[in-house]
Amino acid sequence: MFKSKEKRNKHINFYFKQNMFAYLLLLPSFIFLALFTFYPTIKSIQLSFYSGPLTRLEFSGLDQYVNVMNDEIVRQVLLNNIIFTLVTVPTSILLAMYLAIWLNKKLRGSALLRTSFFYPTVIPLIAIANIWLFIYTPQYGLLDQFLSTFGADDTNLLGHPNTALAATIVMMIWKDTGFYMIFFLAGLQNLPRDVYEAALIEGAKPFQTFRHITFPLLMPTTLFVMIVAITNSFKNVDHLYIMTKGGPDNASNLLLYYIYQVAFTNWDLGKAAVLTVILIAILLTITAFNYFYSDRKIHY
């Protein structure tokens, strides 16, 4: 009796020690997560209910949310970001898929082509913005030099509200397509070969093979790339600093860059907090959607 109790204590002691050890292993990561992910998130939510200058903050409930949602510029920036996402994500994904399917075959030159699509991935977005700013420069830029051979020149894509967003979208597709292509190349290599042989014997046309075999089988990869791409479209705004500063008239502005302007140019902390909370909510919704809904919709 006495002995077994001692044994049990030893047992509990062992588990207690093991648990503590596991927690200790997680502690370093957890400290940094707590300080720079959880705490700032909670702080933003809290600050979003307060308004006024930092030293005299007053509780204002949902007032700031109402103000922000009625703000014309906020609406425009949100709309811009939605357009930016809805165009860049499908375009670069489809293009990446197309390139991957054709460059997956072992042909002379395909390695070189893969490189030429992938290299923009390793270049900082800010450097890419420098290059594309020059491309889009009126008269002297590469685009206008090219167009002048057809007699038309003097475009000012970044200077016009109607074209500024589109110009940054083209640049972003150029930057990201190669990155997504890599995931599709990886996905294609894991596809079962016998299905394709069967399709060939059945006499399926290339497009039929794509529609009924390749596309459905690539679905898990596509979903993964889609989440990465959507997150990127909210996260990567460096180019605006160089190319347009969000202008003209906020025509090319995106949510995160606007937060930067509101927080560090206008020093409107409450508004910046509300916008940060909105951004976090958007990103969480997208991931939650992927997790709870899309996972069930993958068909093999």
Binding site: F38, S44, F234, L283
Partner: peptide, 24 residues
């Protein structure tokens, strides 16, 4: 629970938290 808390950083990446992290 801890695993999910870690997962959160994949969605709320530090790059997004520009403004609150400046305050921290």
């Amino acid at each position: 629970v801890l695993f999910i808390l870690f997962l959160l950083q994949l969605m709320i990446q530090p790059e997004i938290l520009l403004f609150p992290n400046y305050q921290v």
